[in-house]
Amino acid sequence: MQRVNMIMAESPGLITICLLGYLLSAECTVFLDHENANKILNRPKRYNSGKLEEFVQGNLERECMEEKCSFEEAREVFENTERTTEFWKQYVDGDQCESNPCLNGGSCKDDINSYECWCPFGFEGKNCELDVTCNIKNGRCEQFCKNSADNKVVCSCTEGYRLAENQKSCEPAVPFPCGRVSVSQTSKLTRAETVFPDVDYVNSTEAETILDNITQSTQSFNDFTRVVGGEDAKPGQFPWQVVLNGKVDAFCGGSIVNEKWIVTAAHCVETGVKITVVAGEHNIEETEHTEQKRNVIRIIPHHNYNAAINKYNHDIALLELDEPLVLNSYVTPICIADKEYTNIFLKFGSGYVSGWGRVFHKGRSALVLQYLRVPLVDRATCLRSTKFTIYNNMFCAGFHEGGRDSCQGDSGGPHVTEVEGTSFLTGIISWGEECAMKGKYGIYTKVSRYVNWIKEKTKLT
């Protein structure tokens, strides 16, 4: 034993070699072989497995989906700052455009905790909710729209109204504003409101030439003092309507412009014939205590009207009353817009006519005020429907199939267009061939041609 100890002390290297040989010859039971080890760690190889990531292109799944990435790591994937920024906006807080917040056709661009709407022409605001041009839906104005110097929408209202708090709607500024039905039992019968379409306001006024200088022999019209197929109006439903009495009662109609003036057809009036105007009328054979009678003290036909040349060209006249009318729910003026808007309103496509005229061709006159909704007829169809001249200051309205029309005794009465609950004068009943005849239409004086003249002559002093 002493000898062994001496050998170990003198030859430590020998001992180490012996131990190493023993270990190498022993069977290893701690580690699995290569094949079995792979069965336990069965993990798919990654895209760049075996390579240094710093030297390969980034992978979106590896960089940002398996674990949260930084902007720089995302930049490695896209290799483009702009594309990385677009991805980053949604990656950080989701897609803010998912709810489609942009209105009126706006395009949404996502941002971090926010979004941006790219608005089409005519709109602005956070969600493109603000109209900035009158060309689109009248700028959301209830009545009139004008573009300011910086191309912003400025709404306005006709006389007797003021802008509401929203700067879009119009509200009454006087007790009985024009064009409004205020009798409670008839307010439910107000005709369907007309909503502004998209309009090209630059070209809204037709490029028409008034044929002022045409000389033409007097034409022989049949029954051209021209509501057939209409309905009984309720008291106060058309408070701007008046009836004219002269040699015979209810020979023509008219509309209240203001307390002192009536507008009617020029062919209705004769110099030297006494005319009485009755406002607030409903049943011409009954006294309903809503009527107001006034005498006409002055007749002003349009300066281009000449019955000797043509009885229905420039067929418009103004009547001055001896005493002002007292405005109330049964006696209310009709609204008159400017030339541009009167023309736009007419193009809405349908209007209402009213009167006490004959209820059928050569038949009896109506006792109760009649009204009828009539569609506008395109000019080409209008011209083809008659052998008589249709001037540019006239328009056609009615039904091709016949059966409904204005008729004798309705002449001078109103053709009105309702705009968001307020009625505007767009025409004056003038003439036609018979009444409600198939293929024939009622012919009306186009008020847009005469609004400046009306307003100039009827100013209240």
Rank of each mutant, 00 (worst) to 15 (best):
G357H: 12
L19T: 05
F144W: 02
K89F: 05
E129A: 04
I40F: 11
T458Q: 02
F388I: 15
T194A: 13
K459L: 09
G439C: 05
I297Y: 05
L372K: 13
I316P: 00
A207Q: 10
E35M: 09
P101E: 02
E73T: 08
N80L: 04
I214P: 12
N245S: 10
R162C: 04
I284K: 07
N245F: 05
A9G: 14
A397W: 02
L189F: 13
A265Q: 03
V331T: 05
I429K: 14
C128W: 00
C141K: 00
R191M: 14
Y201V: 14
Y305V: 02
Y391E: 11
N113T: 11
V30E: 09
K339S: 15
V359A: 15
L369M: 14
Q237W: 10
E54G: 10
V273A: 12
N393L: 02
E434D: 15
N38D: 12
Q167C: 06
P239T: 02
I40K: 10
E193V: 13
I344R: 12
A250T: 09
N393W: 05
N304Q: 12
R226A: 07
N113F: 04
F144G: 01
T422M: 03
C145S: 03
T287D: 14
H314M: 02
T290Y: 10
G432M: 05
S423P: 02
T194V: 12
K247S: 12
G21N: 09
Y47H: 14
F87V: 09
V419I: 14
L189S: 13
T461H: 15
V183H: 06
V77D: 15
V4G: 12
P12H: 10
N393H: 12
R3C: 14
T342M: 03
L60F: 10
I334K: 00
H302C: 02
K168P: 02
D93A: 07
G94D: 10
Y441C: 03
C134G: 02
P239F: 01
K457S: 11
E66G: 07
G13R: 06
G355K: 09
K45L: 10
Q219A: 14
P101D: 01
C128S: 00
Y371G: 14
T342H: 03
E73K: 07
F78I: 15
F121S: 05
Y441L: 11
G160R: 02
E66C: 03
F221Q: 06
E323R: 05
F31Q: 15
T445I: 06
K274E: 13
E86T: 15
A37K: 09
G106Y: 00
L318N: 00
A337N: 00
A250D: 06
S204A: 05
L346C: 02
V242A: 05
Y450T: 01
I284H: 06
A37Y: 10
A366T: 15
Y441R: 03
F345L: 10
F224L: 15
Y341W: 08
L327D: 01
V154T: 10
N213T: 07
N135A: 14
S182C: 03
I17P: 02
I390R: 08
L60H: 09
F31Y: 14
G351Y: 01
A366P: 14
L103F: 06
F251M: 07
V451Q: 03
I136A: 13
I390L: 14
E142S: 12
I336L: 10
E323Q: 13
A173D: 11
S204H: 09
T85Q: 10
G413H: 11
G398V: 03
D150P: 10
K440V: 04
N258S: 06
K51T: 13
C252N: 01
H303D: 11
T422P: 00
E208W: 08
N42K: 09
D212Y: 12
F71R: 12
C382Y: 02
E53R: 05
E61V: 06
Q237H: 08
L321I: 07
S448T: 05
D249H: 09
V359C: 07
I275C: 03
R226M: 12
V374K: 03
E67V: 06
G403E: 14
N304C: 10
T218G: 09
L318R: 00
E171A: 10
C155M: 01
T276E: 12
C102N: 00
L367F: 12
E165M: 12
N166H: 02
E142K: 06
S11A: 11
P120K: 04
N245V: 09
L163C: 02
A149G: 07
R294P: 01
G106W: 00
V174G: 06
T276Q: 09
R364F: 06
L244Y: 03
I214Y: 14
N245E: 06
N48Y: 13
C18Y: 04
K137A: 07
L189C: 06
T215F: 07
K137H: 14
W431H: 12
L103Q: 12
N147Y: 08
G357E: 12
E129Y: 02
R62N: 13
D315T: 02
P197G: 10
I297G: 04
S411V: 15
E159Y: 07
N135V: 10
A397V: 06
K293L: 12
E98K: 12
V248Q: 13
M394E: 02
V4C: 12
H282A: 08
C407W: 11
L425S: 00
I7T: 11
V416I: 08
S107A: 08
D232I: 13
P120N: 06
H302G: 02
V269E: 02
A366K: 09
K274M: 07
C69P: 05
I297C: 05
G280H: 02
T422G: 02
C335K: 00
H289L: 06
M8W: 13
V202P: 14
H303W: 08
I429L: 12
W431A: 06
K137D: 15
V30M: 13
G363F: 07
I17V: 07
L32E: 12
N42H: 12
V277L: 03
K457V: 09
T264Y: 01
T426C: 00
E116S: 04
N283V: 09
D93H: 09
